[in-house]
């Protein structure tokens, strides 16, 4: 933002038109909704995209491992699809985040940066432990199947749950608890099945979350 006007040299425009209480309540409700929509990077469309990404990414890995006997782990082709869709997801989230936070400064911006750094370190640790497990002689099915998919989702889910709880974001808390349950439950499907189970279950959870977000954006408020 360049050259914003000096607030001490204001023109004398006024908008002192009286408001009917009902009119004021409608204006307040409309403005609050619009502000929350514009300042929050999360949206039903972004969640819908996340559902597609989860299905495509985990589905591609499942297709690459389902015929392996013994289990060797995701093939390069499967990993290329996984990384491509994950990069698309990261790109869209960053775009939405930057768009929503243009002109916003203060505590929450610094807090989000710190959270992002903490999440990055936690995800990196998942892959360090994966290398340690392989080094210790754990089977490919455990290291490159059950562990890597489950641990990644657990870290993401627990991180988001803690973040949502601090902000009293109950919708986000519900989503993250569902992700943790999906991760833990899918681990029982074994090294091949875990990818399919994660992909399908996450897709369903994210579709439900997207629908809930859309419904809440449309639902009338009861507080004013």
């Amino acid at each position: 933002m360049n050259g914003t006007p000096d607030m001490s040299s204001a023109e004398s425009y006024g908008d002192e038109r009286g408001l009917d209480p009902r009119e004021a309540a409608q204006l307040l409700d409309r403005t609050q909704r619009q502000a929350q929509r514009e300042l929050d990077f999360r949206s039903p469309w972004l969640s819908l995209l996340a559902a597609a990404v989860a299905l495509l990414a985990f589905g591609a890995i499942w297709l690459s491992v389902r015929g392996q006997h013994p289990y060797k782990g995701p093939t390069p082709a499967g990993l290329i699809v996984l990384y491509a869709v994950v990069l698309i997801r990261i790109g869209t989230v960053l775009y939405a985040y930057r768009r929503a936070t243009v002109g916003v400064s203060g505590h929450s911006v610094r807090r989000r940066q710190a959270e992002g750094a903490a999440l990055g370190v936690a995800l990196l640790a998942v892959y360090v432990v994966m290398a340690a497990l392989a080094h210790a002689g754990a089977s490919d099915g455990v290291v490159y199947g059950v562990y890597v998919s489950t641990a990644t989702l657990l870290v993401l889910g627990v991180f988001w749950a803690a973040r949502s709880a601090v902000r009293e974001d109950w919708q986000g808390l519900g989503l993250s608890i569902a992700i943790v349950l999906v991760a833990a439950g899918s681990a029982f499907a074994g090294p091949r099945g875990v990818w399919l189970s994660d992909g399908v279950a996450l897709c369903i959870v994210l579709l439900a979350y997207s629908a809930a977000q859309a419904w809440l954006l449309r639902a009338p408020r009861s507080d004013t």
Partner: peptide, 24 residues
């Protein structure tokens, strides 16, 4: 007043301690 109600409601949508640029 319509304009001030909009200003207050918009700024209240920010987390406590955050600020919004004039142009935004």
């Amino acid at each position: 007043a319509p304009a001030r109600l909009q200003i207050m409601a918009t700024l209240a949508a920010l987390p406590d301690g955050d600020a919004l640029s004039f142009t935004r």
